[in-house]
Amino acid sequence: MEIAENAALVVVDVQEGFEEEAYWGPRNNPGADRNIARLIDAWQASGRPVVFVRHDSPKPDSPLRVGQPGNDFKGYVEERRGKGGGPELLVTKSVNSAFYGTPDLGAWLDRDGVRQIAVAGIQTNMCAETTARMGGNLGYEVFFALDATYTFDGIGPWGWTLGADELARATAVSLHGGGFAKVVRSVELIEAAG
């Protein structure tokens, strides 16, 4: 795996509100936060760009809405912001894709000739996946660090349910098999970025 010197790490929605199990339900991948922290550290140590994405939910009952403690980044992310040697960007959004946030992520990446992004964060099958899909559609080479994401059990039409692990596997198959992204482990990205 070749990681460019200017490849950007896009850290999606690692916010306190996702700790509210009563709202979201059971989650998977308890090691995700550790892996996200390691990716941020590796990217910052190498001087590569890091993008921190925050979801400002418009839903009145969401733990992620503006003005609520759940809107804040998790502590380990907040304490890393501003600590890297490379460029850094804060994107806020109210939809699933970081490419539809403020400021314009695509314009920021393109300004510096960035053609590779690595995606990590929450939720695997929602904002992380949507950001990866759009990145692929926009022509970026996308690496999706599956073990640096997590999600929650889900309910769909007709009472269908899928567990968080099943949803994560479906995301991995869709992204990788569909050509949107290369699904990888965080250690592979860390080693390649070293």
Rank of each mutant, 00 (worst) to 15 (best):
W158A: 12
E191L: 11
L105A: 01
K93N: 01
G163Q: 03
M134V: 12
W158K: 15
E141N: 03
R133N: 07
I36W: 00
E129F: 12
E19Q: 13
G177Q: 05
E2G: 04
A22S: 05
S174G: 04
E5R: 14
T130A: 14
V183C: 08
M134T: 10
A37P: 04
V11I: 14
V91S: 06
R80A: 13
R80P: 03
E5F: 11
R80D: 11
G47S: 09
S57I: 09
P58R: 11
A8D: 02
W108Q: 07
V51E: 09
I122M: 15
N28A: 15
W158M: 14
V142D: 13
A42M: 00
A192K: 04
A170D: 04
W108L: 09
K74S: 06
F180W: 12
V77E: 00
A132R: 09
P103V: 01
F52K: 00
A118R: 02
F99I: 13
G135E: 01
G154F: 14
P26W: 05
K182T: 13
I3T: 13
T131L: 07
Y23G: 05
A132E: 03
K59L: 10
L64E: 10
Y100P: 00
G17P: 01
F99R: 13
T92E: 12
P30W: 03
E16M: 03
L189S: 00
M134K: 08
W24F: 14
V95Q: 04
D153W: 06
Q68V: 11
A168T: 15
T102I: 15
K83L: 11
R169S: 12
T151Q: 06
F144L: 07
E20G: 02
S97N: 07
A22N: 11
E191A: 13
D112Q: 15
G47H: 07
R54M: 11
R54I: 04
V184R: 10
S174T: 14
S94R: 08
A193H: 02
R34E: 15
Y100S: 07
N137C: 01
G101A: 02
S57L: 12
T151N: 07
T130N: 15
F18G: 05
S186V: 00
F52W: 09
V11N: 00
V173L: 05
A118F: 00
D165F: 03
A42R: 14
A132L: 05
Y140E: 10
F143S: 06
G154I: 13
N96D: 12
N125T: 10
R65S: 09
R34V: 12
L162P: 00
D41P: 04
G31V: 05
I155V: 14
C127W: 05
E188P: 00
A132V: 06
